[in-house]
């Protein structure tokens, strides 16, 4: 399994201090978790960055395992393309512990990537990024006519929809008839 490391800026161990014990508590080293997408490439992400994802945050909040244990058990997101997961991880790292700006201009402009990103972000429950992505989707059709929107987003016409529905029903009917015939044959 190949591995890339993201957000590896783990805090250095706290220096011994001569200050009295009542002073500020020593810094706790940041913990890291590991995720991989469809391409099995593992990304190392800090717990702070992962806080953006309500799904992952909910999963890890009560685990409390060591870094070695986390490394041995990367979260598998087989339904997310590797490059899309990389974008999500990058975004989480960039916005770790920071207030999110009102606009994000670094999102992909290509339709396929953007829709994949929307779905991944929705699945991972990253609310702020979902808001940006949805804005970007809305921008894709700004000033466009119904025909242009239908073309850009590949929306079938009602007639096409009805034809596809009829075809699906026909196919389902044929399959059911086939199954009945096969069952009758088996019975004989």
């Amino acid at each position: 399994m190949s591995s890339t490391e993201q957000g590896t800026s783990s805090a250095a161990p706290a220096e011994p201090t001569t200050a009295p014990e009542s002073a500020a508590a020593p810094e706790v080293p940041e913990s890291f978790y590991y995720v991989h997408g469809k391409d099995k490439v593992v990304h190392k992400v800090s717990a702070g960055a992962l806080q953006h994802s309500a799904l992952i945050h909910g999963m890890i909040s009560n685990l409390g395992y060591t870094e070695e244990q986390a490394k041995a058990n990367p979260f598998p997101f087989e339904n997310i393309d590797g490059d899309i997961l990389q974008m999500v991880v990058d975004w989480c790292n960039q916005h770790k512990g920071k207030p999110t700006p009102p606009e994000d201009t670094n999102l992909p402009k290509q339709k396929e990537k953007l829709f994949d990103l929307v779905l991944a972000v929705n699945y991972l429950e990253i609310k702020e990024l979902l808001t940006y992505c949805c804005k970007q989707v809305a921008m894709m059709v700004k000033g466009k006519s119904p025909e242009e929107i239908r073309e850009i987003w590949m929306i079938p016409t009602d007639a096409e929809d009805e034809a596809a529905e009829k075809e699906a029903k026909k196919r389902a009917g044929k399959e059911a008839a086939g199954e009945t015939a096969a069952a009758a044959g088996d019975a004989k």
Partner: peptide
Amino acid sequence: DPIYKTNWCDMSAEIKRECIGKME
């Protein structure tokens, strides 16, 4: 979960609503 597709028509109603909410 299924492997994702990349088409407006494959988006859930919930996501579509979120996008529509950002449209003029």
